[in-house]
Design a binder for these strands. Structure first.
Lengths: 191, 191
DNA sequence: ACATACTTTGACGAGTGTGTCAAACAAGTC
DNA sequence: GACTTGTTTGACACACTCGTCAAAGTATGT
């Protein structure tokens, strides 16, 4: 390679992720990312073409990490505990930072300035992935026998619940309340 | 009154609501509302001071109507049916329009440009109101005896679920899926 | 008819946004 | 040392944003 990239791409995407996460796609300007990363706006446009493409690049890494963490939390042998760990992880993730950062994928899903098809596809892939992990975890013979509804349906309910919890976090800013609600749902699914 | 308002306030707030609902608080400009209502920007500023105050005025009407509808849907004597009607109403509301408009309160809750305290208070009032209606409806002796978890917890789970459904609507744009998920939850709560 | 009190109107200031581009630059290759 | 190829840089064009304000307009009360 002859004319090679001068800036540290990992670090730049990391900073970009933080900004997108905190402010959301629509409210984040390329200048915000330039300032946060120390890379000039022009270089960002040269390297990533436009804001949407840069975002997709950032989101790719986010989704991968997130799914990895989810898989880890669900690994607990006890189904109840696995689900509690799962909710614990998502709640901790969204209530991290001051002010709390919330959930990147939910912010993006709701953002009217992020309605491009590429973004929606990326969102679907992440949620599909989470749903698959959940479904697989609660499809064991043991879990199946204890569930009040079929695992496929329970997985959908659980994944939908995580999205709802994100919204409630924004409104009430009370992690304990979120955990209690999550525990209530688990109790209803696995009495 | 001497110098009285020239424009039809009802109609103007109605149009403003439509725009805010479709585009979200942050992405809506005063010019958007001026264009949609036919009232000049200057007049809007004169009448409502600023964008946030105008929004709060709009949201007030929205919340009132919404709570009224919720109360009506929950009135069904059969608890299962009442909850199904409740979800049916929220899902129909968010999937109305082309493109579907989603949920105004959820869009506002997630919007990083709508983080003012007055807005958060208005959001809490609406959600608190919905929760109260739900809780009261499922606190009857009959409902209580059938619920898998206490009515207070069930109300929180239900309200959180509606917020999650809104997010899933944005991602998958599939009303049937939303109804199925809602039905699954009701099944888990009232087996 | 005239004063009053408010609304309407359109221009203004100041800031922000996206994306483009030509020129300067840097790092390998011949 | 010259060439190639991509990157960096800062300025540019253009559009949009919020909120303000002076001047013109208008319906009511006297």
């Amino acid at each position: 390679m002859v004319g090679q990239r001068q800036f540290d791409e990992r670090r730049t995407l990391e900073r970009a992720r933080e900004v997108f996460w905190l402010k959301g796609y629509g409210a984040t300007s390329m200048q915000d990312i330039a300032t946060a990363s120390g890379v000039l706006r022009g270089s960002l446009y040269n390297a990533y073409r436009d804001k949407e493409t840069l975002f997709l690049r950032v989101f790719e890494g986010y989704a991968e990490e997130f799914l990895g963490e989810v898989a880890r939390t669900l690994a607990h042998p006890d189904v109840d505990q696995a689900l509690r760990d799962f909710f614990d992880f998502t709640i901790t993730s969204m209530t991290t930072g001051v002010p709390t950062r919330g959930c990147l994928s939910t912010k993006t899903a709701i953002d009217t300035k992020a309605e491009g098809e590429r973004i929606r596809v990326a969102l679907r892939e992440l949620i599909d992935g989470m749903e698959r992990l959940l479904r697989e975890r609660i499809s064991t013979e043991e879990a199946r026998s204890r569930l009040t509804i079929p695992p496929e349906e329970a997985a959908r309910v659980l994944i939908t619940m995580t999205r709802g919890i994100v919204v409630m976090e924004r409104v009430y800013q009370d992690p304990e309340r979120l955990r209690a609600t999550a525990a209530s749902l688990v109790e209803a699914l696995l009495p």
